[in-house]
């Protein structure tokens, strides 16, 4: 019995090491959004490059993506071609131009192409704040009722699209079709 007691530290170490190894594999940025299953917040903001305003009811009604982007965001440039490809396939993506300069943002879209149905001009970051955005890029999946169903922090690429976003998107499309 007292011999067994000698193994207690070893046992504790193994348990602790197990937790730490698990901790190493977790990405601390992958936090569930506080807005999952909450409605997309109300807003009324200008449309980038147009002289008009857009509000929540103008952009909800079908399953779509909301991509938070900015010209100061380097990763946004990385994911841009992939978003363009998705848009070319007919996937509805709305842009949230987050805390950016309009001129620079329009130049960006001119040069790199515009994958967005429209870009909401969020200069002050107020919509970003209501969405719980803490950096760019972030991509929100919103269902046909305007409820936020998923948030992806970071670049959207082939792996993320095939592994996570596409299956969820398809699921929501099916859900919308059955209603």
């Amino acid at each position: 019995m007292s011999r067994l007691k000698l193994f207690v530290p070893l046992f504790l170490f193994v348990v602790l090491a197990g937790f730490l190894i698990r901790g190493l594999q977790l990405d601390p940025r992958e936090m569930p959004s506080a807005l999952i299953d909450q409605p997309l917040p109300e807003f009324q903001l200008p449309v980038l490059g147009k002289n008009s305003l857009v509000q929540r009811m103008d952009v909800v009604g079908e399953v779509s993506f909301f991509n938070v982007w900015a010209t100061w965001c380097i990763s946004c440039r990385v994911e841009h071609p992939y978003l363009q490809m998705l848009a070319d396939r007919g996937i509805p993506i709305y842009g949230v131009n987050y805390k950016d300069e309009s001129a620079a943002a329009m130049q960006w879209l001119d040069q790199l192409g515009d994958p967005y149905r429209l870009s909401i001009e969020d200069v002050e970051g107020t919509l970003g704040l209501d969405l719980g955005v803490f950096g760019a890029p972030e991509t929100y999946l919103v269902d046909a009722q305007g409820i936020i169903r998923y948030r992806h922090v970071g670049v959207v690429n082939e792996r993320i699209w095939r592994g996570i976003l596409q299956p969820l998107y398809q699921e929501l499309l099916n859900e919308a079709a059955s209603q």
Partner: peptide
């Protein structure tokens, strides 16, 4: 703050 960013 919590309603937007979570308990985090």
């Amino acid at each position: 703050m919590v309603s937007r960013y979570g308990e985090f």
